[in-house]
Design a protein around this nucleic acid. Structure first.
Lengths: 201, 201
DNA sequence: TCAAAATATTGGACTCGATATAATTTTCTG
DNA sequence: CAGAAAATTATATCGAGTCCAATATTTTGA
């Protein structure tokens, strides 16, 4: 049976991630060092890098979501004849119904984003992920060699999601009820996606 | 005469910047250490940080341009009744006529951008500057408390410039003549700005 | 079952950017 | 020139990330 090693690896990785998350949330991202995490997780620092290539990745889990991979899949899997943006709108509706963090502002997600915003290096990593998301969407919209217009559209989609989220968070942090925050979110999504549709005309 | 100190400071800063630039261009951004720069410029490492808060800033000079400060000024100084985007179009025309690096692709600027693209940390800094540009433009478009729409418009302006430049560079690197590269640049600027105009309607 | 191959993990030294502090030098002012 | 102010320095420290050689663990296959 060749599964022992695999399961141990999964355990180790999970333990590191859990320990790191706990420490980060308790004391802030920058305040916790990798040495501390290593000690708390009872592994060597090298082992951490074995599983996570940067400190940021210890907390920025669900990188697929942050890279908007579901968006790409929704475009690729759309029914024949449907416009890419329409497929994205459908996807977002579904995410909303499922209360997916990508399409929802509540106390919990707001706290998460506040945590990210409090750290310059996490913000930097988020920007990087946004660029990766743009690149991925451009491939979906424009094929293997996307032209400038496809890239602009992809960038606008990512920008829209990001801006809508930031605005919703701003409303929420200002003390607005979650309902108003989510309204702000969807209003901007609507505007942005309309602009994407206009782009290609 | 209280100018000796000032001029010495200017000299020191310039010497550091010159020495750093030379080393960077010769051997690549990541390959040159701050210790080397300090030694070559005959200052202590601390003095470098006295003038430049990060290594990236040693080469990313003209931060005002990279932050699109001229864009903000063009909007603020526009004649009464003119739309912000129209003012930006005028500005860009002027920059083109002046062969300003922000609105031009040629061997020289292409080499510069290639250099930046070759360094992950310079790219990261560029993303950060883009965000600062967005924030600044949003203030110009939406007043001291810009709403989501103003932020989206600001983001789209920055995105457009960035995407247009990247696309033009791609054309240029692919061997296209500078003329074609610049055409690609302006075509995307046009599309993007049209989208900005549509946004607010 | 056992030895060898494959793979994970470790410790420790090292690089480099960045920060903090205190000492020292240079410039300015009266 | 004396003393204040500002610039520069040396030095120590931190923390992320890399490298390497040694060690431990798991797998494989004879």
């Amino acid at each position: 049976m060749a599964g022992r090693r695999e399961s141990k690896k999964r355990e180790t990785r999970q333990r590191i991630s859990d320990v790191a998350t706990e420490l980060f949330l308790a004391r802030g991202f920058e305040a916790v060092t990798l040495d501390e995490i290593a000690a708390a997780a009872k592994v060597s620092k090298m082992t951490i890098f074995n599983y996570f290539s940067r400190k940021e990745d210890l907390i920025l889990d669900r990188q697929d979501d942050l890279r908007l991979v579901p968006f790409r899949e929704a475009i690729r899997a759309r029914p024949e004849g449907e416009a890419p943006v329409a497929a994205l709108r459908r996807l977002l509706e579904r995410l909303r119904a499922e209360r997916h963090p990508l399409a929802r502002i509540d106390r919990h997600t707001a706290e998460w984003w506040r945590f990210v915003a409090a750290s310059p290096s996490l913000e930097a990593r988020m920007r990087e992920l946004a660029d990766e998301a743009t690149e991925g969407l451009a491939l979906e919209l424009g094929g293997p060699k996307p032209d400038g217009l496809a890239r602009l559209a992809a960038g606008l989609i990512v920008l829209t999601v990001r801006t809508a989220r930031q605005e919703a968070l701003r409303v929420f942090e200002r003390g607005g009820p979650a309902k108003r925050a989510n309204e702000a979110f969807w209003a901007l999504i609507d505007r942005g996606f309309a602009a994407v549709e206009d782009l290609s005309r």
